[in-house]
Amino acid sequence: MAKRKSKNSWTPLQIITHLGALFPLAWLAWDFWQGQTALLINPFQEATLRTGEAAIILLMLSLACTPINILFGFKQVLPLRKPLGNYAFMYAAIHFAIFIVDNGLVSNSLDLWAVYEATFEKRFALVGFAAFVILLALALTSNQWSMRTLRKNWKRLHRFVYAAGIFAVIHFVWLVKSDIREPLIYGALLTLMLALRIPAVRKWVVNTRQNLTQGRQATANSSS
């Protein structure tokens, strides 16, 4: 029964979301199996870059749901915030796990001091770690029980996702060598998405959209 119920409640959009979110992991596994050059030669660096990119893209998509609803009144994207955010956490966790092994395995033994240094002594790693801790907290509380228990605080806690987004973009900016175009694109998108949530901006956008659709309906009615 429960199975059928959950099956019925999955919209095509949700199915696409889950498949799309799992795609980078499947692609990574496939490329590893196929012996793709960078994964064959320097697997840690390549897998770290790929999982990090998947995490930031999914986090941006999760943050894009509300602005998409504000701009287009497309409510169907709202239930996607949670799975997208959780998948972002999943990739961030894999990313961090690879980082730990990559930096900790020195001369065939696990050097925890090296992991500590790699995580806390470099600003790009530290800000990435901060984003990870936030995503961890949000993933752990992304269930009905936590919502009921935390009540108002749940919403306050989950507002930290904006901070996670900002930290993730800064992490990326500080990581690249010189050509910061790609992280700046994420930064610009994030700024735009956050701006749309400012109550005054949001109100104005929603009003304008409603006026436009009403106007269109009015002209449609009068011409018929």
Binding site: I41, Q45, N103, A114, E121, K122, W174, L175
Partner: peptide
């Protein structure tokens, strides 16, 4: 400035 140089990964 962005990472340690104390260790390295020898390719392979």
């Amino acid at each position: 400035p962005r990472w340690s140089q104390a260790t390295e990964r020898r390719i392979g």
